[in-house]
Design a protein around this nucleic acid. Structure first.
Lengths: 95, 95
DNA sequence: AATTATAGTTTATAACATAAACTTATTTAT
DNA sequence: ATAAATAAGTTTATGTTATAAACTATAATT
């Protein structure tokens, strides 16, 4: 029972894992907030958010605050489930 | 204190993590044993063992069993320390 | 009116993970 | 004795990734 289960490659990435880790504790988060918390560059963040969204792990809403673009993200149920499974599998590697 | 510390890229890789995870519980392990346990291909394993060795995380000894080549690996103190730190950092992401 | 700041997106590139092909030697079968 | 198959890896090729750099568009400031 000490098998190494495959780790979801979408989550086994430092930045995407940090994003999900952050979102799982929040209702939603803004692009700039995620950027600050994860200390990522905007470009990298933009790309990784896209991937998570395409996988259905997060939902991304684009709107405006005043006249400025505002990108808001939140984790989906699919994302939560994927994260839980990832963590479960990962633990076999690190315990 | 919920900062996302950088994750050692050498360990944040499914196969290398599995290798280290395996070796940390053993005195040493043979190439073929690691290959079976991690369900990796020989090529991939060979490459990843090289990387871990170059980083000083494992030591690799090449000898012969009878007339066949025999590659034996074991984790080093540096490797143990790196793994411990990796796990410590990783936990911030998954707790 | 220029410059700087905000909020991102798109593109380019270097590193990576992985599989496929290859090497060298050893058994086993014909 | 020779050919085929197995063992134990290594090397090379390739497709993906992560990341940074460059860019776009608008807004605020000097």
């Amino acid at each position: 029972m000490s098998d190494f289960k495959p780790l979801d490659p979408l989550l086994h990435s430092q930045l995407r894992l940090a994003i999900i880790s952050l979102l799982i504790g929040l209702d939603s988060a803004e692009f700039t907030f995620i950027k600050e918390k994860t200390e990522s560059t905007a470009g990298n963040l933009s790309v990784q958010l896209d991937k998570l969204q395409n996988a259905g792990y997060i939902s991304v809403t684009k709107s405006f605050r005043g006249k400025r673009p505002l990108t808001t993200c939140s984790i989906t149920k699919v994302g939560i489930r994927a994260f839980e499974e990832y963590v479960e599998n990962l633990k076999k590697y690190i315990e």
